[in-house]
Design a protein around this nucleic acid. Structure first.
Length: 156
DNA sequence: GCCAACGTTGGC
DNA sequence: GCCAACGTTGGC
């Protein structure tokens, strides 16, 4: 049984269009430097899981599409690269601290669903994204919430 | 650019 | 193990 997730990305850094333009519309989800998020990627994300793609720090912020897991947790090599923005000297290649997965585009929604609209939708009550102060960049989503967001994405 | 919320670090 | 200081996230 596939699970459901939400990942955040700043569109200035890597937008859903960047994903659409990637080879095979697939990319490695590198740079996650939060233990809670890492643990979910390492232990719980499985090939075939469906993932909402969220644009944070955007105007407006919101969900823009869906991708899916095509490769399960493996070491995030950007942690070993001194020249990389996400370099972490404490991550040892023999015992990597950080993990990434590969995601592939499933669909870009017809429109961006703004955060405001998500907040106003009572079907989405309790979604982690909507909690005050929620900063997790990788988070689980219930099947019910996932379906409700997808439905919004297909209505203009 | 501000700032609230949260995570991490390090002295003790 | 506590907690103050600091850094980051991310909406506004």
């Amino acid at each position: 049984m596939a699970k459901f997730w939400l990942v955040k990305s700043e569109p200035d850094v890597f937008s859903i269009d960047d994903l659409a333009n990637s080879p095979e519309q697939t990319t490695c989800w590198d740079g996650v430097r939060n233990y809670q998020a890492r643990n979910m990627m390492r232990d719980e994300m499985k090939v075939g899981d469906q993932v909402l793609y969220y644009h944070s720090n955007a105007k407006p912020p919101g969900v823009v599409g869906v991708c899916e897991i095509v490769r399960e947790g493996y070491p995030d090599h950007t942690a070993f690269d001194k020249n990389d923005k996400h370099y972490d000297p404490k991550s040892d290649p023999d015992n990597p601290r950080w993990i990434m997965v590969d995601v592939k585009l499933v669909e870009k929604f017809d429109r961006l669903i703004p955060l405001d609209e998500l907040k106003a939708n009572e079907q989405l009550e309790g979604m982690i994204l909507l909690r005050r102060g929620s900063r997790l960049s990788v988070q689980p989503v219930s099947a019910k919430h996932f379906r409700a967001v997808c439905k919004l994405g297909k209505s203009k």
